[in-house]
Each structure stands twice: as C-alpha cells, then as structure tokens.
Amino acid sequence: MDSNRKTPARPPIRVSRTAKGQRPQNFQDPALDKLLGIAVSLAGEVSVLRDRVDTLERLIEKSGLFTRKEIESFEPGADARTERAADRIAYIERVLLAAHRELDEIDSGRVARPLDEIIADYANRKI
C-alpha cells in the first residue's frame, strides 16, 4: 500500500532529513547503528499501518461502507486515541524486546555464567 500517495516523488522544495553535526556511534561497529536505525524506521512504518488498519476496522464497524476520503478525515475519539496509545506501547514492547532482555537477568537475579565456563566445567566433569 502506498501510504504516501500525496507526496510527490520529487517535491518542489526538498527539506533535508539530516542534521548538521557528527552522528554519534553507540556500538563498536558503525554498521550496527545504521541497522538499528533502519529497524526502528520499519517498526514505525508497521505502526503506521497498524493505525490505518485500526481506522479501517472502526469505519467498517460504523457504517459497513467507506471511501478513501473518509480515511483521510477520520477523527479518532478520545477513547480510540487512548486505546491506540496503549496498543502502541504494547506493540513497541514486542518489537524492542531486546532492550529488556538484559535487565530481565538483573531483575530476576538469574545471572548465567559464561557459556565457555559451563562447557569447560562439563569437559572437566565438574558438572
């Protein structure tokens, strides 16, 4: 689905999406910073689709019939907005599971020993 259908391929005035200034590198390998950026963009676009589907479902439920114009002007009410915001947090939590994995260890106090150590213990018949 082309969710950008009103954005011309070549806009008359192009506004750069890049800020002047060195981009910080958070990971040892700069490719990882880029890859993460792409992954989050994708997550964002999926979220956009999810909202759109939600709009469709609500419109169908309401009238059984709709036009594209209706989608563009659909105004979610306060309840729908609250539900969407909560759904979105749950969705982000699923996509960003990696962010919590490490903390789970700390929180549960179940810190595993390094795999090499465990394997060495097997080898040395310590376990």
């Binding site: 969710s3 997550a43 989608i71």
Partner: peptide, 23 residues
Amino acid sequence: LQHDDVARLDFVKSLRRFLSTRV
C-alpha cells in the same frame, strides 16, 4: 495532517514515552 502523518507522529510519541518510562 493526513492519516499517516498523524500515525507517524503518534508512533514517535509512543516510542519516546516507552523509552523514557520503560528503558
């Protein structure tokens, strides 16, 4: 703002809220 503009802005809002409260 069109439908998907709002959805993109909402995603960023939710992402930032998630990051500041949960991560």
